[in-house]
Amino acid sequence: MYALQWKEKVCATCPSADCLLKCQYISFARHDEAHGEMMKVVRGEDSRVLHECATCYACEEYCKRGNHPFYLISERREERGMFTAPRPITNQWKNMTQMQGKYMVGQVKDKALSCCFIPDLGILGTGEIFKDVASAVAFGAEFMCPAVHTHFARMSVIKERLPIVIENFVKLGVKEVICLHDECYGTFTAIASAYGIDVPFKPVYYMDFLLSRMKEMKDRIKPLGIKAAYQRPCSNRLIPDKHPLVKEILDLIGVELPNREYQGENCLCCGEILRSVSGYKLADDVQERNLNDMVQTGAEYCVFNCPACQSSLSEKVAKKGLKPVHIIDLCKMALGEKERGVR
């Protein structure tokens, strides 16, 4: 079984303890308190962090010293037999994402277009932007990144399934896998490397692909001239270096990204997992603050990166008067392939 590669000394001597001091869900008065709790987690002792962490993934971004505090918290919770969400929900996720041989693979050669286990991604990965790779779709639990189980503190599921998913891609003979789901890219890069799991193909982040395709088709872009608030997904915390791509893409298609309180490191997640883990009070509060913050920017659109966020927030943002749209659809709109509007 793979093990989390953890640099204990790096933690022990950490001057910031940013992982916990910046946490939006657990408050600490001072550095020594936060650091002390993290060290308890490191030593495998009980800590309030194990009971209060809302599983937002953010400390993966806050730690700038190469450690993986959130994976460790999840490991420790599992070691203690703890459940973050109710047990039946945890097991349901495990069952729902179980490989059952019901996958779909298109004409894959050296490149695959990974749609994870999210049907909406198959629709997004079409049109001029994806014309060379759209037929190379890989979809299903067999190709799904198992990162979601970190929310449920079931790292064992990840360690068991991730090598199989990687192997499934390898069997297709691919050199590159374009990940349409943010979380897949995060899994093949950040999680795999934290656990020393070899990924023998090149994972490509779809926003890198999108940016380069849009640059290639620059002449065809009709700037949209709109303002859009961005909903950053939890999984993007695993790959913070990719976050600036959003602005680059939106700049290119004439979409203004207004400043708001909950952006960048201070962003708020879509809240749906919080609903399972902590109940509706926290989830409603997070969603309300997040959406009000979007509204006060005067944005016309809410632009999504992750279809799961889009599915949980679309109706809610629409009720606040914003149009929900995926960033790929915004690009398609700029190319004139798609009507301006809601999807």
């Binding site: 109710p86 039946p88 929900i89 109940g279 509706y280």
Partner: peptide
């Protein structure tokens, strides 16, 4: 009404014996 329903069943969520499943799909 949703809040009333959630509150009525909070104890099962606290004990991890039950929870609300996302119904989006």
């Amino acid at each position: 009404k949703r809040r009333m329903v959630w509150d009525a069943l909070q104890e099962y969520m606290d004990s991890k014996d039950g929870g609300f499943m996302s119904v989006q799909y």
